[in-house]
Amino acid sequence: MNRTDRSLDLIQIASPCEADWDVMPGDDRSRFCGDCQRHVYNLTAMSRPEAEKLVFEREGRLCVRFYRRHDGTVLTADCPVGLRGVRRRLARSLAAACGLFMAILGSTALGSFASRWLPRPAGPPSQAFSEWLSPTNNAPPLVGVMVMGGCPAPPLATPPTPVRTVPLPLTEVEPPLPGE
């Protein structure tokens, strides 16, 4: 019998079985069927040489399951298209894992770098947002030019005894009152 005659693509299921593969104990490649007390082999989880070796050594007297494509060929684990897909998926998973790791490292490095690079030490997001919501105007007074604009009451030289008449916003820390 020549190579063409023994092609895996020519195998046929003599007696199709209704047993449920999912309930059989075992792995992707072989499982044990409790109904027939026999091992069932999954050719699609094997490479083509492995599957051919298994089928032809047993002279076809074994239980197998496989997926046959529309063109009549049997799908095996070393299918080039499938392998390409698996490798692409593996590359994507590797990239994601490395990317996450690098992102953690990078953000830590960025935090320490920005602390030196920015005029102020880089604080957490809440600090940046609080500063934006309630800016503290530390700008030096303009001198040598005529200025115009709204003028709030100047701060007192000696701060009065703090009497809380209006509650502070929830995001701010209240100063301790005398006697507290």
Binding site: W117, L118, E131, W132
Partner: peptide, 9 residues
């Protein structure tokens, strides 16, 4: 500086 902080946040 504030732009940098807000951007990072």
């Amino acid at each position: 500086g504030q732009t940098g902080e807000l951007a990072m946040a």
